[in-house]
Amino acid sequence: MTLPRQFAQIPRFRLLYPDPSPIHPLQALTTSLTTNNQTPRVSLYAKREDHSSPLACAGNKYRKLEYLIPDILNPTPPTPNSAINGGATAPGKVTTLVTEGAVQSNHTIQVASVAQRLGLVCVVILHKGTSGGLAAARDKDAFLRVGNVQVAKLLGAEVRVLEPSPQEKNTDPVIDTLDELGAHGKVPYWIPSGASLHPLGGLGYARAAFEIAAQEERASQDGDLGGSGRYDYIFVACGSGSTVGGLIAGFKLLEKSSQTQAHPPRKIIGILNSPTMPCSYHEERVLRFARMAGGLIGLDPEKDITMDDVCLDDRFTGTAYGVLDPESKQYLNMMAQKEGVILDPVYTAKIVRGLVHWVQQGELGRDWAQRATTTHSGQVNALFIHTGGQSALPAYADIV
C-alpha cells in the first residue's frame, strides 16, 4: 500500500497488525438475501476491524489513535481549545490520557489499552446520562460492572462513572477532571469521545481507504471480486463521525490520484446509531471531519469534498443510543447463526440491519442502476465494516 507523499509524511505510531484487517465474503447472508434472477446481483463482504490489532478488544478506534500517539509523545505547548478538541492541556511530557464515553463505550477501553502500551496512566469518564443501554437494562448494577467497564479496569484505567449533571449546574466534569490532574502535577492529554473532534481524528480511516483499495486490487487479480472489481458500497457505523469522514476523505484522494475514472465512485453509507440529534446535525459533523482530514492529506477541503459525498441513514437507530432494540437483536442473532460472526449490540447490529434493508428493499440496486456504467451494471459489491465492540455483550446478557 502506497500513500501519497503528503499523507505518508504524517507521523503514525503503529498499533495494528502488519497485515491489513481481513476481508471475507458473507456467503450465507448473500445467498439468503439474493435470488438468481435479481439484477444487479449483490455480493456482500465484511472487513474485520475487530481483528485489526493485537491490543485489547480490537476495533476502529485503534486506527484513529495511531495518528494521535506521536502528538501524545511529543511534549508541546497546550493545544488551543484542548478541552474541546483534544490534546495536551499543559506544556511538558504527557503523564495521563483522559477520555470519556457512555457506559460500555468501546472507545474508552481502546484508549485505556493504548495508555497501558505507552506506560501512561488512564482516566476514563463514563456518563450515565448518555447511556440508553443503562436505562433499558433490567440489571443496572451488572451493566455498570461487566463488559467494557470490567475490561477498562483490567487494563488499569481509573474509571469514573458520573451521574447526569443538573441543568442548572454550570460546570463541566471533563474540565474539572483535567484541572484536578493538573493541580496534582500531572500533564493530562484529552482525547474526546471517539477521537472525532481531535484535529487528527479522521486520518486513521483516510488511511483505511487506501488499505481497502489495495485489498480490492488483490482480490480482483485473484478472481475473488467480480463486477467493478471494487467494493461499490461501504456500510459503516456513524457515531461520533470521524470514521465515516475519514473514509470519505481517503476515497476522495484515491479518486483524485487515479489516472482513470472507469468506475463510479465508491459510496460510503453511514448507519446512524442514535436518534438523539437529527440526521442533518450528523451530516454537518461528518462533512467537517472529512474536510479536516482531507486538508491534512492533500485535498482542497472545500472544493474536493461536498455534502454530496455524505450519505447517512437514520432509519435504524432504534429508541436510544446503546439500546439493543428487537429488530437489531434479530440481526445480531442472524449473523451469529448464519455466518458465525458476532456483532456488538450498539453499532454493528444496526449496520447489518441497515445493509439488509438496502439489499432486500432494492434500494442498493436502484441506486446502482443510476450510478453504474453499462460494463459493470450486472453485479454490485457491498462491504460491511465490522468496527468491533463485542466485549460489551456481557452487559446485555438480560437482553441477548
Rank of each mutant, 00 (worst) to 15 (best):
residue 42 V to S: 11
residue 277 M to N: 14
residue 188 P to Q: 05
residue 215 Q to R: 05
residue 78 P to F: 13
residue 298 G to S: 09
residue 219 A to E: 10
residue 109 I to E: 01
residue 70 P to D: 09
residue 393 L to Y: 06
residue 7 F to T: 07
residue 95 T to M: 14
residue 249 A to M: 05
residue 25 P to K: 12
residue 86 G to H: 04
residue 314 D to W: 12
residue 190 W to Y: 05
residue 342 I to Q: 10
residue 369 A to Y: 01
residue 95 T to L: 13
residue 241 G to M: 03
residue 169 K to E: 08
residue 309 D to G: 03
residue 121 V to L: 00
residue 231 Y to E: 07
residue 318 G to Q: 11
residue 220 S to E: 14
residue 379 Q to Y: 00
residue 56 A to D: 10
residue 274 S to W: 15
residue 199 P to R: 15
residue 326 P to V: 01
residue 224 D to I: 08
residue 98 V to W: 08
residue 133 G to C: 07
residue 308 D to L: 00
residue 55 L to E: 09
residue 46 A to S: 05
residue 328 S to A: 15
residue 362 G to Q: 03
residue 306 T to W: 09
residue 389 G to V: 03
residue 228 S to D: 12
residue 105 S to C: 10
residue 128 K to C: 08
residue 359 V to I: 11
residue 188 P to E: 07
residue 93 K to Y: 01
residue 212 I to H: 06
residue 218 R to C: 02
residue 259 Q to C: 05
residue 131 S to V: 13
residue 96 T to F: 10
residue 118 L to M: 10
residue 135 A to F: 10
residue 223 G to Y: 14
residue 44 L to H: 11
residue 316 F to N: 15
residue 323 V to N: 06
residue 342 I to C: 13
residue 62 Y to K: 06
residue 310 V to Y: 04
residue 59 G to M: 01
residue 52 S to L: 04
residue 266 R to T: 15
residue 363 E to R: 08
residue 183 A to K: 02
residue 240 S to A: 14
residue 92 G to V: 13
residue 27 Q to G: 02
residue 25 P to W: 04
residue 192 P to L: 13
residue 141 D to F: 01
residue 183 A to L: 08
residue 159 V to G: 05
residue 93 K to D: 08
residue 273 N to I: 14
residue 331 Y to S: 11
residue 382 A to C: 15
residue 177 T to G: 07
residue 349 A to G: 01
residue 173 P to M: 13
residue 97 L to Q: 04
residue 220 S to H: 15
residue 235 F to P: 02
residue 110 Q to Y: 08
residue 388 G to A: 08
residue 305 I to R: 03
residue 232 D to C: 01
residue 245 G to L: 14
residue 52 S to V: 00
residue 109 I to T: 06
residue 284 E to Q: 03
residue 54 P to E: 06
residue 326 P to C: 02
residue 226 G to L: 10
residue 334 M to D: 02
residue 356 V to C: 00
residue 334 M to W: 09
residue 111 V to L: 03
residue 275 P to D: 06
residue 273 N to V: 08
residue 347 Y to H: 04
residue 268 I to H: 02
residue 167 Q to I: 10
residue 134 L to Q: 14
residue 377 S to M: 09
residue 392 A to I: 09
residue 9 Q to G: 00
residue 132 G to I: 00
residue 252 K to Q: 12
residue 286 V to Q: 11
residue 202 G to R: 10
residue 325 D to S: 12
residue 327 E to N: 10
residue 387 T to A: 15
residue 258 S to R: 11
residue 110 Q to A: 07
residue 70 P to M: 06
residue 173 P to C: 12
